[in-house]
Computed example of a mutant assay.
Amino acid sequence: MPSISGVYKTQEGRPINQLYVIKVDRIVRDQADLDYVQSLVDRNPDYFATFQRPELGDFLYADTNGDGSLDNNDRVEIGKGTLPTFTYGASLGLTWKDFDFSLLLQGVGNHQVYYNNQAFRFVTVMGQSLIKDITDNAWTLENPYNSKYPILRNNSNAKNNIASDAFVHNAAYLRCKNIQLGYTVPRNITKKVYISNLKIYASIDNLFTITKFPGLDPEVGADVGYPAVRQYSLGINLTF
């Protein structure tokens, strides 16, 4: 028997903690979509007994098993579990005369995570923020067809905020962990002031991150509370 805990499912022969959520069929954008919702009810008056009937701007969830009813049996497995499919890294070191350069890259590929917290959600909560992408692209009467997200309702009506694939994101990323440029002062200069070695360098941590993940930091996925800090350093290595 499978083990289900929240949005995760573990069963024999499948990845551990595979995401297990309901799928979004569409956003109900206009009267034609409302008529389609009514046709579902006409065929089965109890179609929305488990999940609330959508109105304009709401998500319509998918009857994935095709039994003519929308319920928890329509949830589907997504992704490869809580671990990314692969991780990778690369380092580069170059020297030219008295200069040296190093670069460290790190990333993961195909990492499906469930992200429904912090500022990424489809409800409004007094005193809390939402990311600009959601507020700019939520369904409204003025923007019914180009919206990416459903209508934003108060958190007392969270029917668009249930565990669905709308909150499943690929947290794949490529990050420049460190880049450094250094200059070693020639020995014939440093020996005049009784210095054995003198190196001056500049370093940057977390210079850039390439990702489509909407959260603050794809490296830790849905658990992050703060973005990765970009840090600039200037230093001197001195040996007498």
Rank of each mutant, 00 (worst) to 15 (best):
Val123Leu: 11
Tyr201Pro: 00
Ala172Leu: 06
Asn137Phe: 08
Tyr36Val: 11
Gly6Lys: 06
Val28Ala: 13
Tyr183Ala: 04
Asp217Pro: 02
Asn137Met: 08
Lys97Ser: 09
Thr140Val: 04
Ile200Gln: 07
Val123Cys: 02
Leu207Lys: 06
Ser5Ala: 13
Ser203Asn: 12
Val193Leu: 10
Ile189Lys: 15
Gln18Cys: 03
His111Lys: 13
Leu104Ile: 10
Pro84Leu: 06
Gln118Ala: 11
Asn146Ser: 13
Ile210Arg: 14
Ile236Glu: 05
Lys199Val: 09
Ala119Trp: 13
Asn155Asp: 12
Gln38Trp: 01
Asn161His: 02
Pro218Asn: 11
Asn206Pro: 02
Tyr201Phe: 15
Asn206Phe: 03
Gln112Met: 11
Leu92Arg: 08
Arg187Ile: 05
Lys212Ile: 06
Arg175Trp: 02
Tyr61Asn: 05
Leu174Thr: 00
Asp35Val: 03
Ala228Thr: 08
Ala172Gln: 14
Asn73Asp: 12
Leu181Asn: 03
Ser39Arg: 15
Phe59Gln: 11
Pro144Ala: 06
Lys148Pro: 07
Asn116Val: 06
Ile236Pro: 04
Gly221Pro: 10
Met1Asn: 09
Gln180Tyr: 05
Ile210Pro: 02
Asp71Pro: 04
Ala228Tyr: 02
Lys132Gly: 05
His169Leu: 07
Tyr173Ala: 03
Lys191Ile: 14
